Simulated scan of single mutants.
Amino acid sequence: MKNDTGRAKCVSLTIRGFTSQAQEVADLIGVQSSHQGNVGELVRPYVKTLLTRSYVQYTIEYSNEVALSEMLAPLIQKLGGTQNLIDVQGKVKAEFLELHFDLPSISSEFPQDGYFSNSDIQICSELNTSISLGFF
């Protein structure tokens, strides 16, 4: 699903800023994370910067034909639903949740436009999550 830039259209949910170990949070959610890290660990093996917050991140990649309004629900369902995420967030006292959509830009072979459905907006409201869009 990656294009010639080496990036794939995807959506990710990151739970950030908790005192538990990242693997403990992933275990509570019940799904192995795509990426995770604990406060004080190296950001990347070749970088001396240390993480200031622990995090777990879950990502789903999509083909370019999938509409923006169809991307969030499968991720939330994979993670056990909105209530499961609310419960985990409350247990681990996460500082915040972030949703990030990585989308092809207007100059790509697959230009992207779209909208968030009412149910997507409701999910984001219930989770009290931030939303960011990245274009490649």
Rank of each mutant, 00 (worst) to 15 (best):
V31Y: 13
T14C: 13
V66E: 03
Q32V: 07
E98L: 13
S12A: 13
V56Q: 05
H100E: 11
S20I: 01
V66Y: 05
E61G: 05
I121T: 08
Q77Y: 09
S20F: 15
T52N: 11
R53P: 00
S125E: 05
A22Y: 07
I29P: 06
K91Y: 01
L68N: 02
A22N: 08
L75V: 03
N84Q: 15
L42Q: 14
V25E: 06
F96G: 01
N64H: 10
K2P: 02
E126C: 15
K9L: 02
Q36F: 12
D120L: 14
Q122L: 12
Q36I: 00
A94C: 04
N38D: 13
C124N: 12
D4K: 14
L42H: 10
F135R: 01
L97K: 06
G134S: 12
E70D: 13
S117R: 13
K78S: 12
M71S: 01
L51Q: 09
Y46I: 09
E98W: 08
L85H: 06
R53Y: 04
Q77V: 11
V92Q: 02
G17W: 06
P104S: 09
V56H: 09
I60C: 06
G80R: 14
F18E: 02
I29D: 10
S54F: 05
L42V: 04
K93R: 14
D113P: 00
N3F: 04
I131M: 08
G90M: 10
S125M: 07
A94D: 01
I131Q: 10
P74D: 10
G17A: 05
T5S: 14
Y55E: 02
V11W: 02
Q36Y: 12
I86P: 00
A67L: 02
A67N: 05
A67E: 04
T52R: 12
N64R: 12
G40S: 09
T19I: 11
D120K: 15
S63A: 10
E61K: 10
R7S: 06
K78C: 04
L79R: 11
K2D: 01
G114Y: 03
D120G: 11
N3M: 03
A26R: 12
T82I: 14
G37F: 07
M1P: 03
L127N: 04
I131H: 07
S119F: 08
K91S: 06
T49D: 11
M1R: 13
N64T: 04
V66Q: 02
